[in-house]
Design a protein around this nucleic acid. Structure first.
Lengths: 137, 137
DNA sequence: TCAACTGTTACGATGCGTAAATGTGC
DNA sequence: AGCACATTTACGCATCGTAACAGTTG
């Protein structure tokens, strides 16, 4: 029985499916490709982008970075480092550098998380204030 | 004994003080003024902006809306409604409309809050992922 | 053949950052 | 007289939204 949501590595999805799974707009996915954050596995004869499940996963990481307010440039740097670590062919030197890079991003991510939490508290303040003001005479 | 941080209504602060208290950049405060979200109480002869404590408070609301991802346009609408409610001279009709507006924003604020929380969860996923990947061999 | 999907291109908006050159206030 | 703080003007940038128009898929 075939899974309703294919997740085997050979399945290819077109951009609409991908966007919906990840929760990004078509425009945004195309934008990220244009910025070199990912490249579709291949294209149909007519030019339709086809993405692998691994690339959907990559987009999820991208979306997470977006949630943390990282810029495209930072995403690129992090993804590059990650690619190096995943490539079994990369040398020791490169791996060490990549690991350091990743660690640095982990730190920055933690900082951003704190900022996000602060924003959330801020926002909760407004929600409460509005409830009060709208409810009063 | 005078309070270290003046909060009586007659005190006027210049933009640097205001920005620091609220946690916004000078540029941002000027931008909000340019967009009609607030107007300094008065200016010095030389042109320095002077803000009242009430305006600092207004800026805090603005910052909270910013945290919720509201646009300047939305901020304007909300602040306008709020101003009407606070103005004892506004008529019943206007007050009713303003109250409805506020209530609508309260709802939207709640929605945005949920989105923010979702973002936060998303972001936490990345932080964890990075810790894992950076820690692995 | 039709409906749904996708392609490219390009202009526009939002929300500031960042000078640069100059003036103000204490 | 000096030094921190402020002013205006303006260009720039990131991140998409939104057509507009055409081609593709099944």
């Amino acid at each position: 029985m075939a899974p309703p949501v294919p997740s085997d590595p050979t399945t290819l999805l077109q951009i609409g499916e991908v966007a919906e799974r990840v929760g990004l707009s078509l425009r945004t996915v195309r934008y990220y490709e244009e910025q070199g954050l990912l490249t579709p596995e291949r294209r149909t004869t007519g030019g339709f982008r086809l993405f692998s499940v691994a690339q959907v996963d990559r987009l999820l990481v991208i979306k997470q970075m977006k949630s943390l307010g990282f810029t495209v440039q930072e995403m690129r740097a992090l993804l590059d480092a990650r690619d190096i670590l995943r490539d079994t062919g990369s040398g020791t030197e490169a791996r060490t550098a990549a690991r350091a890079e990743l660690a640095a991003y982990a730190t920055r991510a933690a900082e951003r998380l704190e900022q996000l939490r602060s924003k959330l508290r801020d926002a909760e303040g407004l929600a409460e204030r509005l409830r009060d003001e709208a409810g009063m005479a």
